Simulated scan of single mutants.
Amino acid sequence: MKDKKIANYVDHLIEWLHEERKLRNLDGFVVGLSGGVDSAVVSCLLAKADLKNSFAVMMPCHSNAEDLVDAKRVLDVCKLDHTTVDLSATHSTFYQTVGAANLQGKIANDARVIDGNVRARLRMVTLYAIAQARNALVVGTDNQVEWQLGYFTKYGDGGVDVIPLFHLMKDDVYDLACYLGVPNSVIDKKPSGGLWESQTDEGEIGLSYAEMNRALRGESVSEETSAIIKHWHDRSQHKREMPKVPKAFADF
């Protein structure tokens, strides 16, 4: 029964992707492939939806070499046309130009988080340039847990055209990964944005994905878990909103 539901939802996502592409009168799709499970699922979805006009971009940026290995394992499965754009030198030049002192922040961890966001935004600039050249949609890889907790970079991985995994909790993403044949090395690795050395999603948020899934489904969780979820959700409200505008000039 569960497999049938997954199969039906995959069919729905494929149809939805085509509808969104046609609505915008574009030719295909571009996705950033990181070696993580979310981007692997999206890549496999795109392959099923439109193998000919889907394109994957791997964008290491002073990254763990194993992430690129896992990304290539995903490509072995989904067969997407692809390219690798190493942003390490671009990232270094950015810091030289702006000046590391201007990117320190007020507390110890600020500089690390700012740097992670810089990497995410460099990647999105790259994806949009390639998508424009290919007359394509940029496809996001965030899931419902990341969206509700604001665990994405504003105008980085959050700045996309369509988000097919938007309604999926993390365990749902893993179900789709198994169904779509994502390699076990990707499914089994600890989720990470790869934004700094040894960074993991669960370690940074302070909760396991199992706890986050339960909380966001409205199931019973501890007060501590609820407080952490509320903290992340409230502090990231601005990420889920359109830019604010004042009253119109004509109204004065």
Rank of each mutant, 00 (worst) to 15 (best):
T200A: 04
M242Y: 12
R214D: 12
G105W: 08
V31I: 13
S43F: 00
L13M: 13
K170M: 06
D161G: 10
L17D: 11
A47H: 05
V162L: 03
V42N: 05
S54K: 12
A215S: 15
T90S: 08
S54H: 07
V162F: 00
M1V: 15
S222K: 06
C178E: 15
V57C: 10
S220K: 10
I229P: 03
L103M: 13
F29H: 09
K170G: 05
Y179L: 01
V37K: 01
A49G: 06
G140V: 00
T83D: 07
Y128K: 13
A248N: 10
A215E: 10
K189G: 01
L87F: 09
Y95H: 12
C178L: 14
R119I: 05
A40I: 00
L26R: 13
Y179I: 00
S88K: 06
D3M: 14
A40S: 15
G203Y: 14
M242A: 13
R217I: 04
R21S: 09
Q144D: 11
K154F: 00
G35H: 02
W147R: 12
V31D: 05
L176Y: 07
V77R: 01
V113T: 11
V182A: 00
D172C: 05
N109P: 14
K230C: 03
C44R: 00
I187A: 01
D172V: 03
G181T: 03
R134W: 14
L103F: 09
V138E: 04
D115P: 14
Y9Q: 14
I130S: 08
K189Y: 07
I14Y: 01
L23V: 04
N64H: 08
G32S: 06
R119G: 05
G206S: 08
N143E: 04
L207W: 08
W196V: 05
K22N: 13
D110C: 08
S226C: 11
K230H: 09
G181L: 05
M1E: 15
A227S: 11
K48S: 12
N25M: 07
Q144S: 06
A131D: 11
N117P: 10
N53S: 09
Q96I: 05
E219N: 10
Q132P: 07
K52T: 08
S226A: 13
W232F: 11
V139W: 00
R73Y: 03
V162Y: 00
S236D: 00
N184H: 09
S208C: 06
A89E: 15
I130D: 14
A89Y: 08
K79Q: 10
